[in-house]
Every structure is written in C-alpha cells, then in structure tokens.
C-alpha cells in the first residue's frame, strides 16, 4: 500500500499540497484528478523522492523510499525520460543493466503489443510512440506499484486506445496503479478509487463504481460539481 500522511509541499510562497493523506492499494487502480496546477504531478514526484516534501510522511508497504524501492515501484512520467539518441533496444538494455526487476520476456511482449520497432531511435519517434516507450520502461519492471502521470497527454486517439487497453490487460494485473489524467472518460470504467484534489487538499475520495451505482454520477460529473461550483 502506498500511503501519504499529512503531506505538505510549497513552491516558494505557493502552498501546493496542504496536508494530503490517502492510500493507493495493490491490485487497485487509483486515480488522482483535479484541474491543472492542483498538485497531482507533485504528489507522484514526492512518492518517488524526486521532489522533497516540507512535512508529512510517505511510505510504500510501510517503508520510506530508498534506492532499492525503485525495483518495487515504477514511475512513468509524462515526458520522455530515456536519452533521445538511444534506440528502443538500447533503452531496454540500459534498464536490464540496472534494474533487477526488469523482465525481458514481458518487455518483448510489450514491444509487440505496442508495435514498436526496436531499432528506432527514441528521438525519431512520434510523441505517441515516445509515450509507449515510457510505458514500456515502466511496465516491463516486475514491480508492485506503477505510477503514471498523464499517460494520454498529447497523443492520438489510436495510441490512446492502445494505452487504455493496457489498463485492462494483465500488464497491470495484481499491481497497484496510481494514475493522474485529464482524459478521465477513457478509463473511468476501469478505476477503483478516485482522489479528487482541489486547492492543495483532498476534496473527495470515493469509489468510482459505488458513485455510479449509488448516486448515478460519473467521475466527470463529480468534477463538474466541484470545479464549476
């Protein structure tokens, strides 16, 4: 379980996170939603120790983040993070060199799934294919948790469909997934838990399916209520 307890973070005078506490469980897909600048990416960066928090505690299965934990939690940011001059194959070799959790068999499976060409240079790939390479680097790790930041940002509808398929495939099966996205309608039916952020605090935390069944509201409906008043 990924657990955040009373996490505070500010950039200069701007308080971005103001006492955030929530959990993301293994085997569930948890989605962080909110308008731009609400702190979704900051939360993911903070979990991965890529940005320090001012106050609060973040644990993964009871442990604080350490280098060894990067074999247990994968983060897929919304920017390309492998060297542009690397080919897909070289990027995979790089991961294999450093991560004991790298699963070669699964990596090849993902390459086939996304129809990527191993000899292509990352810099020559389209934005959609670069997003797929990012997913490949994260999903081919045998980790317990996967964090994804805006996986649908700026990509075409067909790539979006392919990425959506990932969520219902066995590639994320049994793992805990924590995702941030604006394209909530694409994956709404797959979500277990939604954490709605507003003004640096958690405005609402709910089960997407229960919300649909009991109140007849979609996640987007709830967001409209919050952000449109």
């Amino acid at each position: 379980m990924i657990e955040l307890k009373n996490v505070h973070k500010s950039f200069g005078r701007k308080q971005v996170l103001n006492g955030i506490s929530f959990t993301a469980n293994k085997g569930e897909i948890t989605c962080l939603v909110g308008v731009n600048g609400v702190g979704k990416t900051t939360i993911l960066n903070a979990i991965m120790n890529l940005t320090p928090v001012k106050k609060g505690e973040i644990t993964i299965d009871g442990e604080t983040m350490s280098p060894a934990m990067y074999n247990k939690v994968a983060f897929i940011p919304d920017v390309a993070i492998m060297l542009p001059q690397m080919t897909v194959h070289e990027a995979m070799d790089f991961m294999k060199d450093y991560y004991s959790s790298w699963n070669c068999k699964r990596a090849k499976e993902i390459v086939r799934f996304f129809r990527l060409n191993m000899t292509d240079r990352i810099s020559d790939l389209s934005k959609g294919n670069q997003a797929k390479v990012n997913l490949l680097m994260g999903l081919a790790l045998d980790v317990d948790y996967v964090l994804m930041d805006e996986p649908f940002s700026g990509i075409d509808i067909f790539t979006r469909e392919q990425i959506t398929d990932v969520f219902s495939s066995r590639l994320v099966e049994d793992r805990g997934v924590l995702i941030t996205t604006h394209e909530i309608q694409d994956i709404e039916h797959l979500l277990d838990k939604v954490v709605l952020l507003d003004d640096g605090v958690i405005y609402k935390e709910f089960n997407a399916e229960e919300m649909r069944e009991t109140e007849g509201k979609s996640v987007v409906d709830v967001m409209r209520e919050v952000y449109n008043g």
Binding site: M48, N49, L50, P67, A68, M69, Y70, N71, F75, P77, V79, A80, I81, M82, L83, P84, Y98, Y99, S100, S101, I122, S123, M137
Partner: peptide, 17 residues
C-alpha cells in the same frame, strides 16, 4: 535541460545516488 528529461531515469535508478 536536454531534449528528454533523463534526470528522472537517473534519479530513479535502484542505486545509491
């Protein structure tokens, strides 16, 4: 500041920073 943000990958390597 390169074309890609390789800092993400380097800082997330499972090795001591």
């Amino acid at each position: 500041f390169g074309k890609n943000t390789f800092a993400y990958r380097l800082l997330m390597l499972p090795v001591s920073r």
